[in-house]
Amino acid sequence: MALLEATGIGKNFGSTHVLKDISLSLEKGEALAIIGSSGSGKTTLLRCLNFLETPDTGRIVVDGKTLWDADDPQTHKESEKRKKRLHFGLVFQNFNLFPQYTALQNVMLAGELLAKERPDYKANRRRIHDELELKARRLLEQMGLSDRAGHYPHQLSGGQQQRVAIARALALEPDILCFDEPTSALDPELTGEVLRVLRELAANKTTMIIVTHEMAFARDVADRILFMDGGVVVEEGSAHQVIDHPREERTRRFLAHYST
């Protein structure tokens, strides 16, 4: 059974049909890259999977549990949305770090907020805080940022900020890590820093969905590639097949345009 199964996902904004009957699956430990032109629906799809947008149609199942079914009102409860989002870690293209907190505090924040809801929090506050800090420091070390733990976002480069954002997403141990154009706000030198981290995560079999415009990275790292155009999945397959030997004319036109 796939870790993630999304079927028939549709999303409209007024009379604009942004997603049209999208279906995809993701195995545990797999890296899926989603490519396509601006406006093809890539980011909206990612936001629907993370419940930052509500799909109008379709079904989302994670690890055998139905998180969303457009035909089942029981899955529509607003009170359950935050719990559903915990299955996904999302890294935005513009970092979205809290400027008033250090790198370490940014990584720890979500865990601390969740911990306060535990019935044993008051009695074990110090221990819980120490455990969260230890985990956060280990994640920053994994990102190559041990010496930046006490720095605020404005004291960090764009690449460093994005690596803090990745550590923050990993801190809650999500089932699936999602990236929305993680290098689009970075210059080429800083892009390399972030892509190295993503390559390491892929090598460690982190389950990932990556919306990206980095074709070389997608070819090297993704187990599968999904090409979207006009709100539909046009082509899906291995990186070698989709990028090097595309079957569909729309895919070939996109890749030809991208390489010029």
Rank of each mutant, 00 (worst) to 15 (best):
A2C: 09
L3R: 15
L3D: 05
L4N: 06
A6F: 04
T7V: 14
G8M: 12
G8R: 15
I9Q: 03
K11N: 01
G14E: 03
G14M: 06
T16H: 10
V18W: 00
S23K: 14
E27V: 03
G29A: 03
L32A: 06
A33Q: 02
I35G: 00
S37N: 07
S37W: 03
T44F: 06
R47C: 07
R47V: 08
N50M: 10
T54L: 05
R59V: 08
G64M: 03
K65N: 08
T66Y: 00
L67P: 07
W68R: 01
A70C: 02
D71C: 05
D71T: 08
T75F: 07
H76Y: 13
K77D: 09
E78Q: 13
E78R: 13
S79K: 14
R82E: 03
K84R: 08
R85C: 11
F88Q: 05
L90D: 04
V91S: 10
F92Q: 06
F92T: 07
Q93H: 14
N94Y: 09
N94F: 11
N96H: 12
N96I: 09
P99L: 10
T102L: 07
L104N: 08
L104A: 11
V107D: 02
G111A: 06
L114F: 08
E117P: 11
P119H: 10
Y121I: 01
A123Y: 13
N124T: 04
R126K: 09
D130I: 07
E131Y: 10
E133C: 13
A136F: 05
L139C: 04
M143N: 03
R148D: 05
G150T: 01
Q155S: 08
Q155F: 09
L156W: 08
G159T: 00
Q160K: 08
Q161V: 11
V164S: 02
A165V: 11
I166G: 04
I166V: 15
A167K: 00
A167T: 04
R168F: 08
L170G: 00
A171E: 07
L172K: 11
C178D: 00
C178Y: 00
D180L: 00
S184N: 08
E189Q: 15
E189N: 15
T191N: 04
G192N: 12
V197M: 14
R199P: 10
A203R: 15
A203H: 14
T206G: 02
T207V: 09
M208I: 12
I210N: 03
M215H: 11
F217H: 12
R219G: 08
D220F: 07
A222W: 01
R224N: 11
M228F: 12
D229L: 13
G231Y: 05
E235T: 14
G237K: 03
H240K: 14
H240V: 13
D244C: 05
H245F: 05
H245L: 01
E248Y: 06
E248D: 09
F254K: 01
L255S: 04
A256R: 13
